[in-house]
């Protein structure tokens, strides 16, 4: 099995280690990764701010680039949501619509791909720490993926997995929302981080680098105990990668 990597902007520029971890974990279960050259952004930040016609060319080149791959996998629920669901709100060329249908059926978020497609739930690793899991909103509510990452976590040996209070409440990031309404966004992050702290977890695991960046930023600035970790990194670390 071979997957084409869809590397979101934050994974490319700020958190490449989580995407590298994803590649390593996939390889561990016998799945080869291919980097699709010349990929850029899927257009989500602009789309969420209300810009549609500006990103049609980006969507079209993305569809063109990825639709003929066997599978497309990304370490982010929100970027997958953009392609799988929100590309349908764009006036893309009719010619590309069948290609979009095709792509929408084979683009997956990493944990969704592992559990639902590759049928892997237990990687056999070990991680003797207390962790909690943050549900990122798009992954949880748009894609309906919340059980898959939890199964992968629970199957790690020696791990102490605790649910925080309201694991599915938004961390306050919301893309451009985080600076357009910075005070509000911060206040939401504060609440999330308090729940993380209350859980006693050493690590807050997540499947989207954007939420993790927001949460990590608040935890660090306020000298809180927990660290954030992408689920791909958790799995890689549990396998001593």
């Amino acid at each position: 099995m071979k997957v084409a990597l869809f590397i979101p902007c934050l994974s490319e520029h700020l958190y490449p280690e989580s995407a590298i971890a994803m590649v390593n974990v996939l390889q561990h279960v016998g799945i080869e990764s291919e980097y699709v050259e010349n990929q850029t952004c899927c257009g989500q930040p602009a789309f969420n701010s209300g810009y549609r016609k500006e990103i049609i060319p980006l969507a079209e080149r993305f569809i063109d680039m990825f639709h003929d791959k066997e599978y497309v996998v990304a370490p982010s629920g929100s970027c997958v949501t953009m392609v799988r669901k929100f590309y349908y709100d764009l006036d893309i060329r009719d010619k590309l619509k069948p290609a979009l249908d095709e792509l929408a059926g084979k683009i997956f978020e990493f944990t969704e791909f592992l559990v639902d497609v590759a049928k892997v739930e237990d990687l056999g690793g070990s991680f003797p720490h207390r962790v909690t899991y943050h549900d990122s909103c798009h992954l949880n509510r748009e894609l309906g993926v919340n059980e898959q990452p939890r199964r992968l976590i629970r199957n790690i040996k020696d791990i102490d997995f605790v649910e925080m209070e309201q694991p599915d409440i938004c961390c306050g990031f919301g893309g451009t929302f985080s600076y357009k309404f910075a005070d509000l966004s911060t206040s939401m992050a504060a609440r999330k981080c308090q729940y993380i702290e209350n859980s006693g977890a050493e690590f807050c695991i997540g499947a989207d680098s954007s939420c993790l960046m927001n949460i990590e930023g608040y935890l660090r600035k306020h000298n809180m105990r927990a660290k954030t970790m992408h689920i791909a990194e958790l799995l890689a670390k549990s396998l001593r990668m």
Partner: peptide
Amino acid sequence: PYVSSLCGA
């Protein structure tokens, strides 16, 4: 419409 993080709750 921007007073939302689009969380979907």
